[in-house]
Design a protein around this nucleic acid. Structure first.
Lengths: 74, 74
DNA sequence: ATTAATATGTGACTCATAGTCCGTTGACTT
DNA sequence: AAGTCAACGGACTATGAGTCACATATTAAT
C-alpha cells in the first residue's frame, strides 16, 4: 500500500536530479501537470501504463528505476 | 505500453517457479482468479496498488521483481 | 467412454476512481 | 510587479477494479 508513496518519492528524486519542473516532466510523459503533482505526493493509484510513461520520460529503464533501496524490502 | 505485457510475463514466470496456480496466487494477493489471468496475459492496465499486492504475494521485493532483463531497456 | 476435478481463459457488466481541464493560491525569484 | 513552480479544488469523462457465467483443456478415476 505504500508502493504508491515510494513511487512518488522516487519520481521526484529523479526529476530533481534532472533539473526538470513537474510541468516539464508531465509534458514529456504526456500526462497532466496537476496529475503529476498528486503522483509525486503519493496520492494517486497510478496505472502501469502511466508508470511506464513517467519512467520513460525520466530517461531511465524500469529496472534502474526500481533499483533504489526504497524498493528492496518485502 | 509494453510494461503491461512484460509485467504479466514476469508474474507468470515467478508464479510457475513457485509452483503455484493462478488461483492460489490470486488468493494470496487478495484478488480475483480471473483478474489474475488477464493480468498475466497483459490484458489489464493494472494499478500500482495491485502491482504491489501481486509482487508481495510472490514473496519478492519490488526491486528484485524488476531486476529481470525484461525491464532493462528504455 | 464418461465422469469429476483442476487449471486457465474470455466477454460482458457495474461501480469506483483514474486522469483531464479549468482555475486559484502561496512561496520564492528577479 | 511579473514570472515560475508546486499544490490544491471542482467538475467532468474515460477507464480500471472487481465479479460473474461460461467455455476449454487436461488429467485421473470409474
Amino acid at each position: 500500500m505504500n508502493l504508491q508513496l515510494q513511487f512518488g518519492e522516487r519520481v521526484r528524486e529523479l526529476r530533481l536530479a534532472k533539473g526538470l519542473s513537474q510541468e516539464a516532466l508531465a509534458y514529456k510523459a504526456g500526462i497532466d501537470r496537476t496529475y503529476m503533482t498528486s503522483v509525486e505526493n503519493g496520492k494517486r493509484n497510478v496505472s502501469i501504463q502511466n508508470v511506464e510513461k513517467i519512467i520513460t520520460a525520466l530517461d531511465i529503464s524500469v529496472s534502474e528505476f526500481f533499483k533504489s533501496d526504497t524498493f528492496k524490502h518485502n
